[in-house]
Design a binder for these strands. Structure first.
Ligand SMILES: [Mn+2]
Ligand SMILES: [Mn+2]
Ligand SMILES: [Zn+2]
Ligand SMILES: [Zn+2]
Lengths: 142, 142
DNA sequence: TGACAAATGCAACTAAGTTGCAATAAGATA
DNA sequence: TATCTTATTGCAACTTAGTTGCATTTGTCA
């Protein structure tokens, strides 16, 4: 998933390719980790792009509806957002500095989804798995 | 985990056993699912117990520090809380009505924790796994 | 029964997120 | 390129979740 592909995806869903939208997606793409609305607002302002918070929230909503980004719940007050890339993955959340890292799918949880759907009255369509602990940086700092 | 055991645990940590604390824990115990601070506030008021929201937040914090309850992140704006019972479990979250059900641990994710800790610079200490989908009630209603 | 810490309420605050409405700009078309 | 339509944006006012300082009340134990 690079900037060009992303632009393609955005245009295909009927969205205009505005400066704000472009910069916001660029930030999410460059960031190795999910970003919150307040964080995005700050980063955009730091880039010299003046944008209102209402626009950010509407933008995140629009991109979410089109399956270009997804909201992830990792604790903390604000929701975080990340580009929906090709492969499914999970997250490592540092309890110390709150940094988030991606971690590739290890076990096949789709099997678990099927088991639950088969054995309960609940139809599972997706899942999210977060691992909590201490990151490399926080171990050396202490 | 029944009311008596819970009272014991509360007393053992040096907490006084107040009417508010008792009712709050009772609500969490009776509820099959996690509850948010605003929800608890509403339920307590419905029970005729007048309590300030500041008290609720401080209470949740105190019980959390003592490992009597835990905060769970399940999407939605408000954090949810549940009694820490003996066995580890995960959650089924209905995307329609937002209801939450417990689901017993199926696979052994402790193994995954160990693998990650061994192969990355990140020391995993816990995890949370949520399954999303449609609950029984919401399937029949549609 | 005090004494003393824990618990509580209140008011004022911050931070995240939402809504309605008016102004602006992207980009398709002529 | 000028024009048109509609998506996008900003602004202000609002809601909801959660926090803080301080004064008052209440549980517990000697
Ligand atoms: Mn990720
Ligand atoms: Mn649970
Ligand atoms: Zn860290
Ligand atoms: Zn449901």
């Amino acid at each position: 998933m690079d900037a060009r592909q992303l632009k393609e995806r955005v245009r295909n869903t009927g969205l205009r390719f505005t400066k704000i939208r472009e910069s916001l997606l660029e930030l999410l793409l460059e960031s190795g980790a999910p970003l919150s609305a307040p964080a995005l607002l700050g980063l955009l302002h730091a880039k010299g792009i003046t944008v209102n918070k209402t626009t950010i929230y509407r933008e995140l909503d629009a991109l979410g509806q089109r399956q270009i980004i997804r909201q992830v719940q990792l604790g903390g007050r604000a929701a975080q957002y990340e580009i929906i890339a090709s492969d499914h993955h999970h997250h490592l959340v540092c309890l110390e500095c709150k940094k988030v890292e991606d971690v590739d799918m290890l076990k096949d949880l789709d099997q678990e989804e099927k088991k639950i759907t088969a054995s309960t009255q609940f139809t599972v369509t997706s899942h999210s798995l977060e691992f909590y602990g201490i990151c490399k940086g926080c171990k050396t700092t202490i």
